[in-house]
Write a protein that binds this DNA or RNA. Sequence first.
DNA 1: TTCAATGATTACTG
DNA 2: CAGTAATCATTGAA
Length: 321
Amino acid sequence: MRLDNMLLAEGVAGPEKGGGSAAAAAAAAASGGVSPDNSIEHSDYRNKLSQIRQIYHAELEKYEQACNEFTTHVMNLLREQSRTRPISPKEIERMVGIIHRKFSSIQMQLKQSTCEAVMILRSRFLDARRKRRNFSKQATEVLNEYFYSHLSNPYPSEEAKEELAKKCGITVSQVSNWFGNKRIRYKKNIGKFQEEANIYAVKTAVSAAQGGHSGANSPTTPTSAGSGGSFNLSGSNDMFMAMQGLNGDSYPPSQLVIFIFSKVESLHHTMGPGYNDSLSANQMYSPREIRANGGWQEAVTPSSVTSPTEGPGSVHSDTSN
DNA sequence: TTCAATGATTACTG
DNA sequence: CAGTAATCATTGAA
């Protein structure tokens, strides 16, 4: 019977607790590849499921009891009647059969509605996966710091991801999501992120110039991806490498750099809406330079080369709804 | 209410 | 299997 199988698979029928919830968890995990991260919602789901399970079993028991009671009641009646008229065992059997069929059809309904309840719960749970909450400001700061200080190769290793996750109070897969989104969105519209890039560049520059580690910053940097000799400072940033490659001379990561960046930033702010990011973009993070370093975002056409006006007014492709 | 930002999901690729 | 690209759905500011 399909319903029975379904209920069994959902862990509603079947043996008590242990195996049941495990089966439910397995079913839930298998259903949508839900990463075992969202344990809160997961346990919520399990709680609801076990509630359904309890109700189901209680009802089932009630029905069975009622069925038995009713059967004995009818039997008694028949027995009483047997005093006045002869009643064949066949007739008794038939009556019992009718009763049982009636009750099993009721049970069927119970199973069906239980199935429905599970389905609804399931779909709600699945929907809940899309429920999102914005990361804390501090978390995005940490992530952005990492991203912009590894712009030439923004692919954190598994360890780095774990460290970032711990630092941000999110899961590793959320870190992966974040970097995936960030890479794609940055690539799509470098200009838009330029200001942000500069801000974080200044931030890391400051912390580097100050002798670095302000405690919470810069998780382990497994591969700086730098082709040549990078700075031996704690914050050997791609930013500086980019600067180096750009002008030929090397800029020590000093107050001067910070000054320059803050100048650029303030310039950026004072420019009107007609301002095109490409200038600052090319000076700070020339995609060509990035490609030379890290090789990501191969297909990106730098705004300067082809069309210098890919500015703020351009099409925004992530607006589907 | 609108809309950009953003985290999550999905389909596809190498 | 990690990434990319497109898309979905929610959040939060204007």
